[in-house]
Amino acid sequence: TGEEYIAVGDFTAQQVGDLTFKKGEILLVIEKKPDGWWIAKDAKGNEGLVPRTYLEPYS
């Protein structure tokens, strides 16, 4: 389980392990790392690192 967040901007993977997403996408945050990069999963089940500055809590 995780917390749902909504993307407030588009993000394109910079390196292997990053997750590309579009503004408005709902992501499930699995782990919040202290460096500001969180592990998240998208609706298709893809998992990767995302920058927390692009996310806001979804309710």
Results as ranks from 00 to 15, higher is better:
residue 1 T to I: 10
residue 1 T to N: 15
residue 1 T to L: 12
residue 2 G to V: 11
residue 2 G to C: 09
residue 3 E to R: 07
residue 3 E to Q: 12
residue 3 E to P: 07
residue 3 E to F: 08
residue 3 E to T: 12
residue 4 E to Q: 15
residue 4 E to Y: 15
residue 4 E to V: 13
residue 4 E to P: 15
residue 4 E to R: 15
residue 5 Y to T: 01
residue 5 Y to P: 00
residue 5 Y to M: 05
residue 5 Y to R: 01
residue 5 Y to H: 06
residue 6 I to R: 09
residue 6 I to M: 10
residue 8 V to G: 04
residue 8 V to K: 09
residue 8 V to W: 04
residue 9 G to H: 15
residue 9 G to E: 15
residue 9 G to A: 15
residue 9 G to T: 14
residue 9 G to P: 00
residue 9 G to I: 14
residue 10 D to N: 09
residue 10 D to Q: 04
residue 10 D to E: 06
residue 10 D to R: 03
residue 10 D to P: 05
residue 11 F to V: 05
residue 11 F to A: 02
residue 11 F to D: 01
residue 12 T to F: 12
residue 12 T to H: 14
residue 12 T to K: 09
residue 13 A to F: 03
residue 13 A to L: 04
residue 14 Q to H: 10
residue 14 Q to K: 14
residue 14 Q to G: 10
residue 15 Q to P: 03
residue 15 Q to I: 12
residue 15 Q to V: 10
residue 15 Q to F: 09
residue 15 Q to H: 13
residue 16 V to M: 13
residue 16 V to F: 13
residue 16 V to Y: 10
residue 16 V to I: 12
residue 17 G to H: 07
residue 17 G to T: 09
residue 18 D to H: 15
residue 18 D to W: 15
residue 18 D to Y: 15
residue 18 D to K: 13
residue 19 L to T: 01
residue 19 L to C: 02
residue 20 T to A: 10
residue 20 T to E: 10
residue 20 T to L: 03
residue 21 F to V: 11
residue 21 F to P: 01
residue 21 F to S: 01
residue 22 K to N: 09
residue 22 K to R: 10
residue 22 K to I: 07
residue 23 K to W: 06
residue 23 K to P: 02
residue 23 K to L: 08
residue 24 G to Q: 03
residue 24 G to M: 03
residue 24 G to W: 06
residue 25 E to V: 05
residue 25 E to Y: 04
residue 26 I to S: 03
residue 26 I to V: 10
residue 26 I to H: 07
residue 26 I to Y: 05
residue 26 I to W: 06
residue 27 L to Y: 02
residue 27 L to V: 07
residue 27 L to G: 00
residue 27 L to K: 00
residue 27 L to I: 07
residue 28 L to F: 10
residue 28 L to I: 12
residue 29 V to G: 01
residue 30 I to N: 03
residue 30 I to L: 14
residue 31 E to S: 12
residue 32 K to A: 05
residue 33 K to R: 14
residue 33 K to E: 04
residue 33 K to Y: 09
residue 33 K to I: 07
residue 34 P to K: 10
residue 35 D to F: 05
residue 36 G to Y: 05
residue 36 G to R: 03
residue 36 G to S: 05
residue 37 W to N: 07
residue 37 W to Y: 10
residue 37 W to E: 05
residue 37 W to V: 07
residue 38 W to Q: 01
residue 38 W to N: 01
residue 38 W to H: 02
residue 39 I to K: 10
residue 39 I to E: 04
residue 39 I to R: 13
residue 39 I to S: 06
residue 40 A to R: 00
residue 40 A to T: 03
residue 40 A to G: 04
residue 40 A to P: 00
residue 40 A to M: 11
residue 40 A to L: 03
residue 40 A to Y: 01
residue 41 K to P: 00
residue 42 D to N: 15
residue 42 D to H: 03
residue 43 A to E: 10
residue 43 A to C: 08
residue 43 A to M: 13
residue 43 A to I: 10
residue 43 A to N: 10
residue 43 A to V: 12
residue 44 K to P: 03
residue 44 K to N: 12
residue 44 K to W: 15
residue 44 K to R: 14
residue 44 K to V: 10
residue 44 K to C: 10
residue 45 G to Q: 06
residue 45 G to P: 00
residue 45 G to I: 01
residue 45 G to R: 04
residue 45 G to H: 05
residue 46 N to K: 09
residue 46 N to T: 09
residue 46 N to I: 09
residue 47 E to P: 05
residue 47 E to R: 09
residue 47 E to H: 10
residue 47 E to D: 06
residue 48 G to I: 02
residue 48 G to R: 01
residue 48 G to A: 02
residue 49 L to V: 13
residue 49 L to E: 05
residue 50 V to M: 02
residue 50 V to S: 02
residue 50 V to T: 04
residue 51 P to A: 07
residue 52 R to L: 10
residue 52 R to E: 14
residue 52 R to A: 15
residue 52 R to M: 15
residue 52 R to G: 12
residue 53 T to F: 12
residue 53 T to V: 15
residue 53 T to I: 13
residue 53 T to E: 15
residue 54 Y to G: 05
residue 54 Y to N: 06
residue 54 Y to D: 04
residue 54 Y to V: 14
residue 54 Y to W: 08
residue 55 L to Y: 00
residue 55 L to Q: 00
residue 56 E to H: 10
residue 57 P to R: 07
residue 57 P to I: 09
residue 57 P to V: 08
residue 58 Y to K: 09
residue 58 Y to W: 13
residue 58 Y to T: 09
residue 59 S to Y: 15
residue 59 S to M: 11
